[in-house]
């Protein structure tokens, strides 16, 4: 019995770990028609790339002339993971634009969760973007 207890506890721990992943239900034929952006990806952290994948990148104009970018991310692990991300905005002349609120932000994704992060460029001159993602320490 004494030897059985640690095994049972270990199994319970394992099951709890599995239970953190997210099940989802959605419309079989989505009605939304997002404007997808062809993206270029630069991977410098392969561990992060294994844990987090970019599902899609889409864009829209809000408030008339401001660029909004939405990036859908998926936590490929079955455990909750925390990441930090930052959007940089680039003007039509290639210059990076600065803003008062453009710092690193945190996102926590449950196991296998798919979630979108988005940002709006506060400067109407922004035409391009760069999203940086890093794993939390």
């Amino acid at each position: 019995m004494k030897t059985l207890l640690p095994i049972l506890a270990f199994a319970a721990l394992g099951l709890t770990g599995c239970a953190t992943s997210v099940n989802t239900v959605q419309r079989a034929n989505p009605q939304a028609t997002p404007s997808y952006v062809a993206d270029q990806r630069v991977v410098t952290d392969t561990t992060l790339a294994r844990k987090l994948s970019t599902v899609s990148v889409s864009e829209a104009k809000v408030s008339g002339n401001l660029l909004k970018i939405q990036v859908t991310l998926e936590n490929r692990s079955t455990k909750p993971q925390a990441f930090t991300y930052k959007f940089d905005w680039i003007a039509d002349d290639g210059m990076e634009l600065s803003g008062p609120t453009g710092g690193w932000k945190q996102i926590q994704l449950e196991g296998r969760e798919v979630r979108a992060i988005s940002a709006i460029a506060t400067n109407p001159r922004a035409v391009d973007f760069r999203l940086k993602v890093r794993e939390n320490n």
Partner: peptide
């Protein structure tokens, strides 16, 4: 974070 999200909500 608060300012960024509130501004985004207002603009959107």
């Amino acid at each position: 974070t608060a300012a960024d999200k509130l501004v985004a909500s207002l603009l959107a």
